[in-house]
Amino acid sequence: MRELVYYVAVTLDGFIAGPGGEFDAFLVEGDHMDGINARFADTIPTVAAEALGIEQRNDVFDTVLMGWNTYQVGGLPSPYRHLRQIVFSRAHTAEAENLEVTADDPVEVVRRLKQEDGGAIWLCGGGALAATLADEIDRLVLKRQPLLFGSGIPLFGERPYRPERFDAVETTAYESGVVFSEFERRREN
């Protein structure tokens, strides 16, 4: 079965963007970028990867999920055209290469996707969508940035208090101060 992986940059105080969706303070230069480019090349927007000469083989992810605000951030009609892109919105539509905008229930969509053949499913953002899909997330890959935002869009939007355990898989600290931490959901036997 395919995994849903929430792979996202997050501040030390738990925000994935500023109050207005700002993300330009996140570090995009430094030794951590080699880790992103080597292991998670599929998460680089297609245009940027082409400009940098980075090959995208879809060997980790072949599908990306995002809410409308996350989709709008880059201003590109098909930001990850090398992947199957599913954008959740009840109010908007868009047409572009490998892009599907749907008003369907995200949980039902993810459950269907998990039954299909293919690679992992990347939950790109945002926080409200992550909260909706929290029970479906199999793996977290957090790029903790050495930043405090003070306020903004939380890693997980509002959800009821219900502790859930994830086990640490791997942590890599970079001189830039960015720390990649990977966790997998603890499955009760």
Rank of each mutant, 00 (worst) to 15 (best):
V169T: 05
H92W: 15
H82P: 01
R165I: 15
T171N: 12
Q85Y: 05
G35I: 14
A25V: 15
P163Y: 09
A134N: 14
Y161T: 10
V5S: 04
A25K: 13
E136A: 10
Q56W: 03
L12A: 09
Q145F: 14
D138G: 06
M33A: 07
A128V: 02
A49E: 10
A91K: 12
P77Y: 04
D13M: 03
S176D: 01
E158V: 11
L140F: 12
W122L: 01
F26C: 08
Q72P: 05
V107I: 12
N37F: 13
L76I: 07
G53N: 02
L133Q: 11
R2L: 04
R90A: 06
V107F: 05
V179I: 11
F156S: 06
R159I: 02
L123E: 01
V47M: 08
Y161H: 13
V64L: 02
L65D: 01
A25I: 11
G67P: 03
D42F: 00
D13I: 12
I16D: 00
I86N: 05
V141L: 14
L4A: 04
D59Q: 14
R144S: 10
T43G: 14
I44M: 05
E97F: 02
L76V: 10
R90L: 15
A103K: 12
G125H: 00
A120V: 01
E55N: 07
Q85T: 03
A168E: 10
D138M: 09
D105K: 05
E170W: 15
N58S: 08
E29N: 10
G20Q: 14
R111T: 03
L83M: 14
V107M: 03
H32T: 07
G127P: 00
D13K: 04
P154H: 15
V73Y: 13
V87G: 01
E158G: 12
R81Q: 03
I86Q: 02
G53F: 00
A25R: 13
S78M: 02
A131Y: 05
W68S: 05
D24S: 09
V73C: 13
F180G: 03
G157W: 10
N58W: 06
G127Q: 02
V47P: 01
D42N: 06
D105Q: 02
E188M: 05
P79T: 06
T172G: 03
L129H: 01
Y6H: 01
A38C: 11
A103T: 13
G18P: 05
R81M: 00
A41E: 04
G30E: 10
S181I: 10
N189A: 07
P77A: 05
V178Y: 00
E97S: 04
V109I: 04
P154N: 11
Y174N: 08
D167E: 15
M66F: 12
A168R: 07
L140H: 13
